[in-house]
Amino acid sequence: MAFIPAVSQMENANVRMMEDLERAVQKPPEERRWGMVIDLTKCVACDACTVSCKAENKTPPGVNYTLVIKEEVGEYPNVRATFLPRPCMQCENPPCVEVCPVGATWKDVEGIVVIDYDVCIGCRYCITACPYGARTFDFGDWYTKGNTPMLAPYETAPTFEYGEERVREDEVSPIGNVRKCNFCIQRLHEGLLPACINDCIGRARYFGDLNDPESLVSELLRERYSFKLKEELGTSPKVFYLS
């Protein structure tokens, strides 16, 4: 436990991460390497991240860029709950990219795995290839269609994923495409932290430039024990877990 105060005593993690971000966006894009650190000891499984992601990206039912896996370990009365928030790992060697027949998805210069909605043919091969279940298909479902008098405005408001303004409409991309977490690239470029980082009530999520030794994420990875999911597959995730 000796290490934890090092984090919690910090001025304000959010302020620190914003400063890190500002430094990072001043560098040429290819010199940044965005990464996320998630402290499992602090996650309370409130799903604030899940919801803030929904609000930011207006994702329809069934499409989840991030979620929290909740499991029970042991038997009553000796039980405990474990929580595992799971965004896209933004793998250094993303198997989802390899399999795309049309090159609609790739790792961009900043290390984020992106999708071009106007190119993706919706074959879903990438969904099968992602070892983390991080990709979901936009089937064209709506939260408020059919069961309410009208589509709720939050479903028809434009999104700005990948910096493109889009209004979701039947039969138009991103419907029929595979979608995934992109570390809120549109926010990063405006100097804002990803939505889930901002809204994490347990301060369990950290974000920043892994190439910057001064950044909070680099510091956490130096000071705390961390692991990555399914490292044995050679995907080299850029999402790290502290436990």
Binding site: P101, V102, V119, N177
Partner: peptide
């Protein structure tokens, strides 16, 4: 019919990614 965007199948010809077995197959 399984494709999310049936109208885009030509992209497998116009911009194939030959690291993908699916592109090879097509």
């Amino acid at each position: 019919f399984d494709l999310g965007h049936m109208g885009r199948f030509y992209e497998v010809y116009s911009r194939p990614n030959f690291r993908s077995m699916m592109a090879w197959m097509v």
